[in-house]
Design a protein around this nucleic acid. Structure first.
Length: 134
DNA sequence: GCCTTGACGGCAA
DNA sequence: GTTGCCGCCAAGG
């Protein structure tokens, strides 16, 4: 295993986005920037959304749980209609502060280090720091 | 090989 | 406090 391959063990930028997205717990959402940041590309939030533009069908990526930094359903129209995404999130118990804006401070889930021991130690679920705004 | 677009984010005026 | 502009990274035409 060459050092080059060792460093390039990351399959693809897109694959990494899907991997993180698949780790989003039920009833929880994350942001493009959070995913990008967990990948080591804090300024690549744009590419994260671009990757979710065409996710592999066999991965079943819950892209509806990914919103922008304000919790707005940026890609709502990419599901055919924002109402489709809202219905999915709403069905998971995700609180909305507006018709197409989720209450991030209640459901904001951070990818942390998906794929790392840290995530496994937490159980990749129920880390839920969350806020207690009421 | 070049330029433009794109499901975002942060900073400045 | 709000609105607008620029910057990043990658893929498509």
């Amino acid at each position: 295993m060459t050092d080059d391959a060792a460093q390039d063990d990351q399959p693809d930028f897109y694959s990494r986005v899907y991997e993180v997205a698949l780790h989003i717990p039920y009833g929880r959402v994350t942001t493009y920037g959070a995913i990008a940041r967990s990948m080591g590309h804090p300024n690549s939030a744009r590419v994260v959304g671009y990757a979710l533009n065409a996710p592999p069908p066999f991965l079943d990526v819950p892209c509806h749980r990914v919103v922008n930094r304000i919790g707005f359903l940026s890609g709502g129209w990419h599901f055919g209609h924002p109402d489709v995404m809202r219905d999915k999130l709403r069905a998971e118990g995700v609180p909305f502060v507006d018709d197409y804006q989720v209450d991030l401070k209640r459901v904001m889930w951070e990818p942390w280090a998906v794929g790392s021991a840290a995530a496994d130690e937490v159980g990749d679920l129920e880390q839920i720091p969350l806020f207690e705004d009421g």
